[in-house]
Design a protein around this nucleic acid. Structure first.
Length: 263
DNA sequence: ATGGTGGGTAGCCCA
């Protein structure tokens, strides 16, 4: 069995103790992190090494964004993409070399896209769509068993948000984004493991805004995803959201996802 | 219901 986790941690240095707690509790073989918000030289390698996660691929930058994959299975860095050609650190890929040998694990942080869903008045929205389009072209070329995970910043299904109608004009759930994400899925035949294991319309949110906690309502969205190549998807045996991390002190606004594979 | 909260950074940006 090989288990893979993904988590938008919203500063790995601030929350390194929570990452340690998660790894000790859930024992995934590999953890993909997004929004590490640090350069590689400031990444807390020692905390991971102490738990046996001695293999690292860190693509960071100062203050913003940044992704990292840590593993207790030997691996090598496989890819590093800048889909916007603007220097932002949002994608790192690895190849597993021992257990799960041959699996490619692509860890991505898709841009949030700003507030207004109109590329004419909000360039960030256009950049998000362009990012998806470039990933779509890349997906067409993939010819190895691949797992694509991370914070996609899109909740595609009606049941992936707390109020579908209310969010149709809110970036993360607009039809134009959902259609772009569907084109990305179709380009490789990506299988949405979240919905393979937790079929619609069951609730499985992965993110809640910090700005809505006071409402005391469950206003979540499913922004984080694990997508597998068709043959690899057939080998997934379990998948879960670890929602209890929300109860920890000063939590990330995202919760971790874990998938197990019979490999 | 057009605010609100959080993180990193350094004289605001990003989410």
């Amino acid at each position: 069995m090989v288990s893979i986790a993904t988590w938008n941690i919203n500063s790995v240095r601030l929350r390194v103790d929570q990452v340690v707690r998660f790894l000790e509790q859930e024992q995934p073989d590999v953890l993909c992190l997004q929004e590490i918000k640090t350069q590689e030289q400031s990444f807390p390698f020692k905390a991971f090494d102490a738990l046996g996660y001695t293999h690292h691929a860190v693509h960071g930058q100062k203050g913003y964004h940044g992704v990292a994959t840590v593993s207790r299975i030997p691996m090598r860095e496989f890819s590093r993409h800048d889909w916007q050609a603007n220097g932002e650190a949002r994608h790192v890929g690895v190849e597993l070399l021992d257990k799960g040998q041959g699996m490619i694990l692509e860890n991505v942080y898709i841009p949030a896209g700003g507030d207004l869903p109109d590329r004419e008045v909000n360039p960030k929205f256009g950049q998000k769509l362009d990012f998806l389009q470039r990933m779509t072209g890349w997906s067409e070329q993939i010819d190895r068993p691949t797992l694509l995970v991370g914070d996609f910043n899109i909740a595609p299904l009606d049941c992936d948000v707390y109020d579908h109608k209310a969010l149709l004009k809110v970036v993360s759930h607009t039809p134009i984004e959902v259609e772009a994400l569907q084109r990305l899925a179709d380009a490789h035949g990506w299988v949405d493991l979240g919905r393979k294991h937790i079929p619609a319309p069951e609730r499985n949110y992965s993110w809640w805004s910090y700005r809505s906690y006071w409402r005391q309502k469950d206003q979540g969205r499913r922004l984080d995803h694990m997508w597998a190549s068709p043959d690899l998807a057939a080998q997934s045996t379990a998948h879960r959201f670890v929602e209890e991390t929300r109860k920890w002190e000063k939590p990330s606004d995202h919760v971790p996802l874990i998938t197990e594979f019979a490999l």
